[in-house]
Simulated assay, not measured.
Amino acid sequence: MKPIDDFFYIKGNAVSYDSLNLIQLYLPIIGQDAMSLYDYLAHFFDEGQKRHKLSEILNHLQFGMKRLEEAASVLEAMELLELYESSGVYYFRLKQPLTRDFFLAHPAYRRLLANRIGDVAVQELALQLPKNARNISKKFSDVFDHLETDKASVQTRPAPRLDLDNFQRLMQRDGLQFKDEKKDIIALYSLAEKYDLNWFALYNLAKETAINHFISPQRMTVKKQQMAKAQRQKQQDEIFSKEEQVILRETKSAEAELFLAKIKKVRRARVTSDEKKILEDLAQMSFLDEVINVMVLYTFSKTKSANLNKAYIMKIANDFSYQRIVSAEEAVLKMRSFSERKTDVKSKQSKAAKTNVPEWSNPDYKNETTAEELEELAEFKKRTLAQLRKDGE
């Protein structure tokens, strides 16, 4: 976002300004900058009638761009603002603050507020019903049951993902404890949201990673990261062959010049100044070393030379640049598809009707690598990968 960027208010998004709950409940958490931004957007709302510049907000609030972005992020995190973007134009959607009951029933919000103003102050803000009071209010079904009304259309604010009551009930059953209840509950809520976990799945994760019966959000996070990494590895194993997995591992483990030196070592050669310039040119094209290494390996496997073939590798590089190849995985898949296309072409040619006219008399005839040469190139790739693994040990 830049000061010259345009924004609109979203039509039909007028909200009732709830100053009481904003000041009592939200302000201690979001801070003055976010509060000022919310106030500005609420009071300058124009039903999306005209285009505005972000500089208008900066000038009025006396903010810099960094403070504006940080304030907007806080409002977004507290579900007071949603930011949309379309064709370089931003759209602000304000959201109504939670009522006091919903806010204090939200485990993360209540703990955040308690961290700022203390448990006693939060308790003072909570609804105080008379002792032994019994709720005798009519329910919706008691009044409107005789009407053909879609009860599902009656909307309430969604309950927090973390059902803290049930979570703590299982904690008591299994003898688990919080080490720092306020911080731990906030961390648990963040984990539930980040990894889309319901309260029961979150509890099982907490139980599995607990330290001496104390819940450890840090170990829970590490466990989820480990599980995600294992899932990515499983997907990669399903996509790539064993040889391709070796290529990926080796191309990601060395800088481009060192990788080239390892390959040339197999052919008893050294890196030349011209080859260093080629690597530099590829880097200037914004390729990462891992992508350059795939191009280098593939070029050597297809050319019978101890030196890097500039014409061949630049042809690959131009194709990669056009296809926006940015990772070793994408590069390997691209080279695989290229090889598969060549195989399909050869297969179709072999199935074509036979003729007595010699192939070399065809003006479009191109001399292809012989089976012996292909076998030799495959053996070279095998030796190269073996040498790379040896050098990496």
Rank of each mutant, 00 (worst) to 15 (best):
A261I: 07
K229M: 10
K265G: 15
K342Q: 14
L164V: 13
T251D: 01
P3D: 05
E257P: 01
Q235Y: 11
Q24M: 12
N356Y: 11
T369E: 15
F7Y: 15
T272P: 00
A133R: 09
I239S: 04
A378K: 14
H60Q: 14
F8V: 02
V15M: 00
Y365W: 12
E79I: 04
I263W: 00
A306I: 10
F338R: 09
K53M: 10
D237I: 09
R157V: 13
P217Y: 02
K151R: 11
A261D: 08
K302Q: 12
K346D: 10
M285Y: 08
P217I: 08
M78A: 11
D5V: 04
R116N: 12
D119M: 06
A192H: 04
T221D: 09
L54T: 10
E243N: 05
S361P: 00
Q168K: 12
R324E: 13
A317R: 02
S190I: 08
L248T: 01
I29Y: 03
F144Y: 12
F240Y: 08
Y312V: 10
K348M: 11
Q155R: 14
I263A: 01
E85D: 07
D142E: 12
T369N: 15
T369M: 14
L75S: 03
A105W: 00
L248G: 00
I57Y: 01
Y312S: 05
I247Q: 03
I10G: 00
D184I: 15
D150W: 01
G31Y: 08
K138S: 12
Q387K: 13
Q96F: 09
T384N: 03
T355A: 07
E379S: 13
K207R: 14
E250T: 05
S273E: 14
F259E: 01
K351R: 15
Y298R: 15
F103R: 04
L385V: 05
L197Y: 11
A261V: 06
R336Y: 03
R161D: 09
E208M: 08
Q233S: 10
F7N: 00
S337Y: 05
E257K: 03
A126E: 15
A201R: 09
V143A: 06
I278R: 03
S16D: 06
I136R: 06
T272F: 12
A386M: 06
D237K: 14
E250V: 08
L377T: 10
S87I: 10
R67M: 08
I263R: 02
Y38T: 00
I4V: 14
S273C: 04
K183M: 13
V122S: 02
L162S: 00
D150S: 13
E47T: 09
N21M: 05
L297W: 07
L205V: 09
V271P: 05
A371H: 13
I325L: 03
I136S: 05
D274P: 00
F320Y: 07
A159I: 04
G48K: 03
R116Q: 15
Y17V: 04
L61Y: 05
M227C: 11
K138P: 06
K223V: 04
A317K: 00
G64N: 14
Q24R: 13
I211Q: 15
L388I: 09
M220T: 06
R67K: 12
L112I: 11
Y9H: 11
R110I: 09
L27T: 06
I30F: 01
F102M: 08
T272V: 05
L191D: 07
